[in-house]
Nucleic acid binder design. Structure first.
Lengths: 234, 234
DNA sequence: GATCGATTTCATCATCCGATGAAAAAGGGC
DNA sequence: GCCCTTTTTCATCGGATGATGAAATCGATC
């Protein structure tokens, strides 16, 4: 109603050299700042002015580079999504090819999850913020669904199809439901909310992804097997 | 910095009769409207004016009853939390008493989760919104942790202690991690984001809590057992 | 039906928000 | 050292937001 089509005005052409890559650095700085803030407070909990202050730039510069606040958010989301999908795809490829005729449910699940754990451990704070952001979007009914679907559905279908090869007798319904349980666990673990730290009175730390790795694969694999074995008819 | 202490001005005394309970009805109407909006768009994505419009009241009335926007949110969160805790506590009591010496991991987990599924199915749209709200808070690093902990930690400790009775050899670390995986799955299922509908191309529906019930208990129980059996030392 | 407290409405404030246009600065290419 | 594009800053706009004080209305009690 109040939204009207805006002319994106002066978008940098992209062709030609960006002079000295100084602009590109600044763009990344803005994305970093926005990423951290969005991850902590959500889309509506962050103002362009906060992002600008955090990045040390003028607010107008953010509009110059990204257009609107929503486009900035999308840029943040997009930046790492492709890397993520590639890493997962490569991991699944490697597993499938290295275990011909000998794939296991747990092996497939590990190939699906492990890249995210590794990236979160090796990728620095930016990736940790990003995972918290994705977890938040995943639980946002309003517009989270479409955003998640667009970027992550293909690799999920890949997971389900691979599991179907390992367990041909499994119903797709059961595989999709099991996947949803898996993604709920995985996203909560990756977002490192700190909940488990206080809950366990210091016995567990949400930042300890080695502890996650040592349990999550087995947990999810056993869950899949149990659901497949039970195979409810509904 | 910009936040300054506000005098909460005219809080209704609470004692005495609220005349004709008309005020109480209006209060509930406001809470209902706020609940639905907060669940869909999050705390920062909702304005007092939207809540007022949805409830059909003046914005000043919301401040009269609840003080600030944040206090309104807390009131929304609080309203159903106690009912939830009571239902779960009763369910766990009943299971423990009815299965002396014969408790199973799946039975305990079912006693822990089933009340939420039943309430969501029988409680109407308000409860569905509420679960979506809790799921969102659960994934909010900024202030979700403390809010969740204050209201839901006791019943979680109850779950862990009961499981410890069923599997005395289990390490607490493993039980807490397994619980985190469980809560991630459970919250995502209860929030009914619709993700699985499009992902499965219509084969599953996130609103079908019977399908969840038929799989989630078995999935989580098998996960717990696998983690306990593996017992990583870290 | 006058009184008095509880409830509801009205008008408004100070502030902040996203966004934009215009001017200034930076930086090569020649 | 000028020209032209890109980048950055500055000043500001129209509107929305949370919140509040004061006035009006309601409702029970005497």
């Amino acid at each position: 109603m109040t939204t009207q089509v805006r002319a994106p005005r002066g978008r940098p052409a992209g062709r030609g050299r960006p002079s000295k890559a100084a602009g590109r650095d600044l763009k990344e700085t803005i994305l970093d700042a926005a990423e951290g803030l969005f991850a902590r407070h959500g889309f509506h909990g962050v103002t362009i002015r906060q992002v600008a202050a955090e990045a040390g730039v003028d607010t107008a510069l953010i509009h110059y580079y990204f257009g609107s606040k929503r486009e900035l958010f999308d840029a943040v989301f997009l930046r790492r999504a492709e890397i993520l999908n590639t890493a997962r795809s490569v991991s699944m490829d490697a597993y499938v090819k290295s275990h011909p005729g000998r794939m296991t449910v747990e092996g497939v699940i590990e190939a699906f999850i492990e890249p995210l754990l590794r990236i979160s451990q090796d990728g620095g704070q930016g990736w940790k913020s990003y995972f918290a952001l994705v977890a938040q979007v995943n639980n946002t009914p309003a517009w989270g669904g479409e955003t998640m679907a667009r970027f992550f559905d293909p690799v999920v279908h890949r997971l389900v199809e691979t599991l179907k090869i390992v367990r041909p007798e499994a119903e797709y319904r059961d595989l999709y439901w099991s996947y949803q349980f898996l993604t709920g666990s995985m996203m909560l673990a990756l977002s490192e909310t700190g909940r488990i730290d206080s809950l366990s009175e210091g016995q567990c730390h949400s930042s300890d992804l080695n502890a996650v790795r040592a349990r999550l694969f087995a947990y999810c694999a056993a869950g899949f097997e149990a659901v497949i074995a039970r195979a409810p008819k509904d």
